[in-house]
Write a protein that binds this DNA or RNA. Sequence first.
DNA 1: CTGATATTAGTACCAAGTGCTAATACTGGA
DNA 2: TCCAGTATTAGCACTTGGTACTAATATCAG
Lengths: 194, 194
Amino acid sequence: MKKTKKERQLALTASIKENPFVTDEELSANFNVSVQTIRLDRMELSIPELRERIKHVAVKTFDDEVKSLPIDEVIGEIIDIELDEKAISLFDVKPEHVFQRNQIARGHHLFAQANSLAVAVMNDELALTVKSELQFLRAVKAGQRVVAKAQVIDRNPEKNRAYVKVVSTVDQATVFIGTFEMYRMTEQSEGDGN
Amino acid sequence: MKKTKKERQLALTASIKENPFVTDEELSANFNVSVQTIRLDRMELSIPELRERIKHVAVKTFDDEVKSLPIDEVIGEIIDIELDEKAISLFDVKPEHVFQRNQIARGHHLFAQANSLAVAVMNDELALTVKSELQFLRAVKAGQRVVAKAQVIDRNPEKNRAYVKVVSTVDQATVFIGTFEMYRMTEQSEGDGN
DNA sequence: CTGATATTAGTACCAAGTGCTAATACTGGA
DNA sequence: TCCAGTATTAGCACTTGGTACTAATATCAG
């Protein structure tokens, strides 16, 4: 049985977002409605026609040929944080994070999650990693969710240091342990003129 | 005065390369020839029509929109490698690798370069990092080129282990030192059924 | 001046639409 | 049950940026 207008329009939006190259005709076939209905839907949702959509995608790429995104600000999603104390982040391992050969996550992704969490938990203008010791205990595979828990275990205000321990687990099993010696830059004294 | 056919076709190719979004009509105006001439030129040069050109640009970007995020197979460019012995890679620090606040490179990029170099130097089907110790000695800024040198310093064939030391420098100054205990997986014995 | 090459013109057609009008279907409430 | 209002479908003219093809002119070289 057919979906309601609302459901269809939601699905339509999703469908086009996922594949901007789809024509009204294909959509009408997918949703078992007439092409006109699809057009009306697009109007209401103010989704431009195929050619415009494609053009936008193309222009976008043409523009940013420069930037080619790096790893994001924080790797993983921080779901809990108590500054200067502890923090937790989640990282979903996707196919692009693993070795093709055996689907095992590359070490630097686990490190990136842990390290950026260690940086985030510091209650400072900026924190830099000085030293770190890592143990990769268990292979993590694509599709798994890594939970990283960071804990500030020690501080040395005179030397502007803090020590953070990060334990990452998958389904309660520890897969990675890292300790980080962080250099904190709280003082704005030597800030730039900006 | 008008250009010869050859000149025009050269200019046309360049023109379209520079701006794939130009229509035949615009081109015909640019070169002071008829639209048909432009079409004939495109035929001879086998340059596809506007929409196809745009679509290709769009598809390209759409493709790498998916994969762009992961760090690539090897971070940095390997310029010299002696399997099981040593390897060297270059990594140019770009704006996207640094903290916005102070332009200092994020630790995980240095780690990623070093770690992937350590993996690469292993003469094995696959190598995984087991443990590692890192020192971030000096801040690296955007625009600098990091030279990472990996050296296999020890081996323990019975335990399938190897030890790799990576020293990264910028202008001869050491910025990062990492030691990696690697687990090697040479034996195909326990391979999956794939 | 002739023949080949180059250019222009014009027609029919296509895809993937927009914009508009009109008919039909469906659905909820008095 | 009927009626109003919303939803859906249909149909037609028109638009862009072309393709495919034919035919008429220009232009130039020997």
